[in-house]
């Protein structure tokens, strides 16, 4: 067991995957010689060489499109998109090509590729470097989307994404890169589509993912002081998401709050709320309440961004609302 940072766990996952499988390559802007803008790919060039670890031009559309072609021709590319905001430039390759190739060619092939991208605020990066756009990608049939909250899952979900035969988006919250946690020497892949109970509780369920999981845990601790025993579910995967696990938790607590950093409207929380109001209707003893950012672009100034990002107090208020 080693204490490592979140970003180092992803680095180890990439290195282990490249060691295990020569068809895995890593490419992206500044990922090779500079080691990645957040240092996640540091050292890979030295270990695996310039054929398999490639700095690319600032050509997001072409590098993701090329990854589709490479995946169709026997490689397992892992692309880094420097900020999730830049995924806009890759949408044809992701949505019309990677996601649909298997289906529209009648199941002839798989497209085993991974696109890593950091989302989220907290570093005052402003409207074009802070967005959480995962709901867009989770809405596209053919893509899978994962979002780790812990060091173990940063490793495990990255390994699972690379091993997966379909295109997987790994969303990494940049506020987590420096977070520390334990990574066992024998760390394993985290199965895609399975949630984790981050905190067991009886009175209300808080479903969350990524960097909102520690916020939800802080909210649960606050609620505990008020005598409310909240359960926190870490989704880990957004597409597919673990509906049975959420339903099982709701069946225990009968109250549901969904919290994410992305804007609340039309988000991941909306899908979960819709499903639970259907299949979980009989379990509900209160309204399903969502916590997300207000419907606006992420603002720059510190006071504005602090206000914009959901915090523990907002989750506490939401739990109290559904329990009222």
């Amino acid at each position: 067991m080693n204490e490592v940072r979140f970003g180092q766990a992803i680095n180890k996952a990439l290195a282990d995957a490249m060691t295990a499988d020569p068809s895995v390559i890593v490419l992206g802007e500044d990922v090779a010689r500079p080691g990645g803008p957040f240092g996640v790919t540091r050292g890979l060039l030295d270990r695996f060489g310039p054929e398999r670890v490639r700095d690319t031009p600032i050509s997001e559309a072409a590098i993701v499109g090329a990854s589709v072609g490479a995946a169709m021709t026997g490689l397992r590319p892992v692309v880094e998109i420097m900020f999730m905001d830049f995924v806009t430039l890759t949408m044809d390759a992701l949505v019309n090509q990677a996601a649909k190739a298997r289906f529209m060619f009648g199941g002839q092939l798989s497209v085993p590729m991974v696109v890593r991208m950091p989302h989220g605020g907290g570093i005052n990066a402003g409207p074009q470097h802070s967005q959480c756009l995962e709901a867009w990608l989770a809405h596209v049939p053919g893509l899978k989307v994962v979002c780790p909250a812990t060091v173990a899952d940063a490793y495990g979900l990255t390994r699972a994404a690379i091993a997966d035969d379909d295109p997987v988006i790994v969303v990494e919250n940049k506020a987590l890169y420096a977070a520390k946690g334990d990574l066992p020497d024998t760390a394993a892949a985290t199965p895609i589509g399975r949630a984790r109970t981050a905190r067991a509780g009886r009175d209300a369920t808080i479903v969350s993912y990524g960097a909102m999981v520690p916020v939800a845990l802080a909210a649960a601790a606050d609620l505990g002081r008020d005598g409310v025993d909240a359960e926190v579910i870490d989704l880990r995967s957004l597409q597919p998401w673990d509906e049975p696990a959420v339903l099982a938790s709701l069946a225990r607590t009968h109250r549901l709050v969904i919290a994410h950093e992305a804007v609340e409207a039309f988000g991941v929380g909306a899908e979960i709320a819709a499903r639970m109001s259907d299949v979980g209707f009989d379990e509900l003893d209160g309204p399903i309440v969502r916590v997300g950012a207000p419907f606006m672009p992420p603002p720059f100034a510190k006071t504005l961004e602090d206000w914009f990002r959901p915090d523990a107090a907002k989750i506490v208020a939401a739990v109290k609302r559904t329990m009222a």
Partner: peptide, 8 residues
């Protein structure tokens, strides 16, 4: 880009 990636 698909052909470029295939060539890669």
């Amino acid at each position: 880009p698909i052909a470029v990636g295939s060539a890669l």
